[in-house]
Amino acid sequence: MALLASPDDPDDLWQAVGDEVPAHRMLMQGDVVVTDDGPLLVVTHACSMRRGAELHDTQMAAPIEDHQVSKWDGSYDWMPAPGAPVPDVDNPAGLLRVLRSVDTSLLVSGERVAVMSNLGIQLLQQRLAHHLTRVAIETAELAEHCAPILSEAELHEDWMGALGAYAEPQFHDLLDTDDRKLRSWLSDPAKRPQAITTVRREIRRRRDG
């Protein structure tokens, strides 16, 4: 059995690529951004990118290089990114050996060309943890841990898409009301669907007015 997981289909790595990438999606682990400093893969853990709603000033990133990863299990220095539309790069892959800190402004001002799916983010986290520690953690465990922040990112995207960027503060207000009740629900697998239902109904109420 392979030590590290791989996708059944490379398309499963991505939530959106190219023109499909929503401009209002929050910056997230696994984003591929073409910056003035070259193409970068954002690797800062999804839970560590922000303090509250504000992004930290710097993030960790790996440079994207043109490298044909022959096999997922074994090429531990790389995070393959097949299908990410990076200009002049046929076989994009993040080089985990050259992780570096970059200014968040560099990422925000760059062109985001691909955003990873939840599965893609879990595979990235697994490879990253293994690269740094040689510990292989099951993706199912990583998925459970990340579910609250990835659910929040999804709801944020829905909110911004339906109500516009000006409504962003109200999104965070909604999650924080009642002693952060909805955030607490998002962290609890038994109540997460209730939180999702509550936010989506609120989006519908505000949108349909």
Binding site: L150, E154, R192, A195, T197, R200, R201, R204
Partner: peptide, 13 residues
């Protein structure tokens, strides 16, 4: 599935 049942898009997919 999403609004009434509370599945994420990722789960629905």
């Amino acid at each position: 599935l999403s609004t009434d049942r509370g599945f994420s898009w990722s789960d629905i997919a």
